Structure formats: structure tokens, C-alpha cells
Deep mutational scan, measured.
Amino acid sequence: MIVFVRFNSSHGFPVEVDSDTSIFQLKEVVAKRQGVPADQLRVIFAGKELRNDWTVQNCDLDQQSIVHIVQRPWRKGQEMNATGGDDPRNAAGGCEREPQSLTRVDLSSSVLPGDSVGLAVILHTDSRKDSPPAGSPAGRSIYNSFYVYCKGPCQRVQPGKLRVQCSTCRQATLTLTQGPSCWDDVLIPNRMSGECQSPHCPGTSAEFFFKCGAHPTSDKETSVALHLIATNSRNITCITCTDVRSPVLVFQCNSRHVICLDCFHLYCVTRLNDRQFVHDPQLGYSLPCVAGCPNSLIKELHHFRILGEEQYNRYQQYGAEECVLQMGGVLCPRPGCGAGLLPEPDQRKVTCEGGNGLGCGFAFCRECKEAYHEGECSAVFEASGTTTQAYRVDERAAEQARWEAASKETIKKTTKPCPRCHVPVEKNGGCMHMKCPQPQCRLEWCWNCGCEWNRVCMGDHWFDV
């Protein structure tokens, strides 16, 4: 396979590697080409510095992935760790964990309700045991953590790749202090920090972006993250068709209702045909949960890209028209025109101005929308079919299609509260000796007794199943 190397943020060049090629071997190839010592090179990928003893497969490097290699003399205490030698983080029983690669970060837990604080980093599902597709590297999971809308060759929703760059020099040479644990960490600028490894760059702020994971991409090709779309790892039924499908869209209502993408497309087109989208002054033209839940309008309007190009163009047109109407304007009634106009409040005669090729020149009556006339309008008909009709959803289907309910059931079956801080902690095999993952707590306690870890627990039921 081919990976592209950008040395000291210059133009990239291809390097041929195998899945079992080590990072140090990659350094040696680059060092020979650039005429520099291999031990002064640092390989940066997806916000993480890659260790010498890791392989291309370990690092989730795919065909035509772009890695950054910078030349920086080692500072005291760094060289041993980078070589894969006596790194205290690798000691058996050590409590410190390697910062998780962005290629394996899962933010789907952050669609849980606000009262489930902490689960994004504490609760991990076991539903990723799908067998890898044919042709994928051994052991590589097909679980997708992110979804994007690819405006490039795909023109559809695709699995996405999370990447990070330095907000100062805009190069992907920043190593994160810690990985993101929720969508806010990724979507809110300057929320996460790190250290830029580019020479002479003092940058410390992280800037995240997404790429389409279905095809090789260049540095400049980015895609918009659709953070309401998630892999259906909890096997929730769709609120409309009641099938279990994946991926799904999880509405931001209190129940976190789930809808499959085909039904979401149908829901949007139906509402669009009836012009029953909601115009929100802050958000724009949007839709609420299909069950009509309060405070559930979709905030990231790129989710409506699921409509496809033709329907999305209609959505944008109707949204612009609705904006004009909300501002007190009118639409030209001549067939084939429909231009938005903003006449004076007491102006009865409205002319669709033909300047700049935008208007048709038609003069019409503001009251009856017919060709302009003197005197009273002959008839004014009330528009028919403008009443909002509820999208029919079966109550039982709505009850079963809740992301929140599956989460709470998982928590109930696989977790116990920490005796000190009461945060839910998952036990997935292993011994009875637990350690609270909350940095402010870190209590060592017994899963069996529910009390602080002691010699009695150690001698009596340390390794009970």
C-alpha cells in the first residue's frame, strides 16, 4: 500500500509500505531520502505521535493516508518512550493509558441525555464484534464512529474520518494533550489543546475536521460531520418502519427517538411537499423529531443533505422563500418566477423588478396576487391545505425507538455506581478489583462488596467470576 509523507509540512511524497511495516522502518526510509538522522524524526498522525514499535496496521493507516513527519531533536526523557523501550505506560498493571487514536474515538455516547454525564468515556458498548469485510486488514473493525456528507465523488452519507490540525499553522502536526470525549470537544473551536510539532510553531489549540472515509482524499478535501447519525450498535428499532437498520439518525429530543435514513428521507420529502418545515429565527429551515417532541429541531442543517441534490435544492429554495415571508415580504405569483420581494408595508401595487435578471417585471396586487387592478379585489380565496398535519407515529413504536432507553438498560445490566462519587462504572470481565475512572475520584473498590478495596476482598473473592 501507499502512504503519503509530508516532511516538515512540505509537499508530500509517496512511500510504499506493508501492513506489518513498523513506524521506525518508515522513519528509516524517510531519513534516507531526506539525509537526516532517523532518531530525530517524529511521525504524527490523527493528533498522535506514533511509536517506533507500532506497525502501519496498528495505527489504522489506510491506503493513501497522509502522515506528517517532522525533524525535531529529542528532548530529555522522550527518546526512550518513542523507541518502544522502557515506557512506564506499558508496564503490566499500570494505570496510565495511551491517548486514544482519533481513528478509534467514539462519540456516540454523547447523544445520551444530559443526566448521563461521564458515560462518553466510561461506558463502552460490546456491539462492535462484526466481522471485518472481505479485503480489510485482519482485526480491523467495521464499526463506524462518525458519518459525514461527502460532496465529492460519493454525493451521499458516508463513514467519516476525524482529523485534527494546529489552529495556528493549519498543519496536521499537532499532538493532542488528551483525546475528545464528546461532540462539544470536536465542534467547539479551541476547546481542546495540544502541542504543535512543526518547527518554530508555538500553536497549542486544536482544530478538528472530518474527511470522507470511503475514498482517498487530499489535504484540502473536508466534509461536514453529521453528528446525529450513528451506527445502530444498540439495535434500536426505527420509529417509523420498526426495522432494525444501521446507520440511524438520533433526534435530540428527551427520548432520543431513532429513525433509519430511508424513513428520514421520506419524512423530509413529505414535509417538504406540504411546505411544513419549521422556520426558526436562529436555526433556519428545519424539522423536529418525527414524533413531534418539543425542543427537538435539527440544529445542523447539513443533515438535510440526505435528501439528495434535487430535493436539497428545493429545500434551500423553500427556506429562502419562507425567510422572505417571515420578513413581511411577498413572492411573485407569476408561474416560473417566484422571486422574493420586500415592498413597503402599505404598498398595494407590487412590481417584480426586472433588474439584474432576477425579476420578471410582472405587476400584481398584494392582496389577491392577481395582475394589478384598481378598486376592490374580486375574490380572495383562503389558501387550502395549509394546516399542519401531524406525522403519524405509532405510540408503541415510539416507545421502542428510544436510544436513551437502550442506554439505561445497558447501564443497569453492566454497571454499578462507584461507592464514593456514584458514577456508573462498567465491568466487562476481569477481577473484582475496580478503579473509578473519574479523575477527581480514582477510588479503588470491590465490585462484589461495593466497598473500598481491602485485604478481605483480596483474599476471599479477588478473582471470582
Score class of each variant (00 low, 15 high):
299 K>H: 07
413 K>E: 14
121 V>Y: 12
34 Q>P: 00
169 C>T: 00
406 A>H: 12
190 N>G: 14
364 F>W: 05
42 R>L: 06
228 L>T: 02
309 E>I: 09
32 K>F: 10
64 Q>T: 09
326 Q>V: 06
245 R>V: 08
33 R>D: 04
249 L>S: 01
455 R>V: 15
334 R>T: 13
103 T>Y: 09
42 R>S: 14
39 D>Q: 08
193 S>C: 06
219 D>F: 07
111 V>M: 13
156 R>F: 06
93 G>L: 11
270 T>Y: 04
195 E>K: 13
425 V>A: 15
413 K>R: 12
440 Q>A: 15
67 V>I: 10
137 P>K: 12
268 C>W: 02
318 Y>F: 06
76 K>A: 14
312 Y>N: 04
216 P>S: 08
175 T>F: 08
49 E>F: 00
372 Y>A: 10
409 E>D: 14
10 S>P: 07
187 L>M: 12
75 R>F: 13
99 P>K: 14
356 N>Q: 08
222 T>L: 08
445 W>Y: 15
31 A>V: 01
108 S>Q: 12
109 S>W: 03
328 G>T: 03
40 Q>T: 12
341 L>H: 11
3 V>S: 02
104 R>G: 15
167 S>L: 06
163 R>C: 15
172 A>D: 15
239 I>N: 01
287 L>C: 03
289 C>K: 02
443 L>E: 07
357 G>I: 13
238 C>P: 01
382 E>N: 14
95 C>S: 13
379 A>Q: 09
173 T>C: 08
89 R>S: 13
148 V>Q: 02
224 V>E: 14
202 P>D: 14
184 D>C: 03
259 I>Y: 01
117 V>L: 12
210 F>N: 00
230 A>H: 15
245 R>T: 08
160 G>N: 01
233 S>F: 08
216 P>V: 09
91 A>H: 10
411 I>Y: 10
275 R>E: 00
166 C>F: 00
124 H>Q: 12
161 K>R: 15
34 Q>E: 15
358 L>Y: 14
58 N>F: 11
397 A>L: 10
228 L>I: 03
338 G>T: 08
427 K>R: 14
400 Q>N: 15
134 A>P: 11
388 T>F: 08
175 T>W: 07
182 C>L: 04
439 P>K: 05
22 S>K: 14
432 M>A: 05
213 G>W: 05
137 P>F: 11
157 V>H: 04
179 G>R: 06
294 P>L: 05
8 N>D: 07
207 E>V: 06
440 Q>T: 12
73 P>H: 07
315 Y>L: 10
373 H>G: 02
282 Q>N: 14
265 H>Y: 14
135 G>Y: 11
8 N>F: 00
234 R>H: 08
405 A>W: 07
397 A>P: 05
116 S>F: 05
288 P>D: 06
374 E>F: 06
447 W>S: 07
277 F>R: 00
7 F>K: 02
11 H>N: 05
119 L>T: 15
9 S>L: 04
330 V>A: 06
231 T>R: 11
55 T>H: 05
196 C>G: 01
60 D>K: 15
61 L>A: 02
201 C>A: 01
174 L>D: 00
225 A>K: 02
419 P>E: 03
266 L>G: 05
364 F>A: 03
269 V>M: 04
285 Y>M: 04
283 L>A: 09
415 T>S: 10
459 G>W: 03
292 G>W: 03
135 G>Q: 11
120 A>I: 03
39 D>S: 08
85 G>P: 11
214 A>P: 02
450 G>M: 03
438 Q>W: 06
456 V>D: 15
180 P>A: 03
396 R>I: 11
17 V>G: 00
71 Q>L: 05
299 K>A: 07
301 L>K: 09
280 D>Y: 09
81 N>A: 14
93 G>A: 14
296 S>H: 01
259 I>F: 01
206 A>I: 03
110 S>R: 09
320 A>Q: 11
435 K>M: 06
240 T>M: 15
401 A>C: 08
12 G>F: 04
388 T>P: 13
50 L>C: 04
180 P>T: 00
125 T>F: 04
133 P>V: 11
268 C>N: 01
313 N>W: 15
69 I>S: 00
219 D>V: 08
21 T>W: 14
453 W>Q: 03
406 A>Q: 12
330 V>T: 11
50 L>A: 03
444 E>W: 05
416 K>P: 04
374 E>W: 05
143 Y>G: 06
69 I>A: 08
146 F>W: 05
311 Q>E: 06
355 G>W: 09
369 K>R: 06
127 S>E: 14
147 Y>S: 02
211 K>H: 15
206 A>S: 04
419 P>Y: 03
224 V>H: 09
370 E>C: 05
88 P>E: 12
367 E>Y: 08
400 Q>R: 14
337 C>P: 03
169 C>I: 00
318 Y>E: 02
385 G>V: 08
418 C>F: 01
300 E>R: 04
30 V>N: 00
127 S>Y: 10
394 D>R: 05
101 S>P: 12
285 Y>N: 03
421 C>N: 00
101 S>C: 09
372 Y>H: 07
10 S>W: 09
175 T>R: 13
259 I>A: 03
362 F>Q: 06
17 V>L: 09
63 Q>P: 15
221 E>H: 10
326 Q>E: 13
250 V>P: 01
366 R>L: 09
371 A>W: 15
11 H>T: 07
410 T>E: 13
210 F>K: 01
283 L>S: 11
115 D>K: 08
222 T>I: 09
236 I>W: 02
198 S>C: 05
346 D>T: 11
397 A>R: 07
384 S>G: 07
441 C>I: 00
204 T>Q: 09
356 N>S: 12
406 A>V: 10
448 N>P: 04
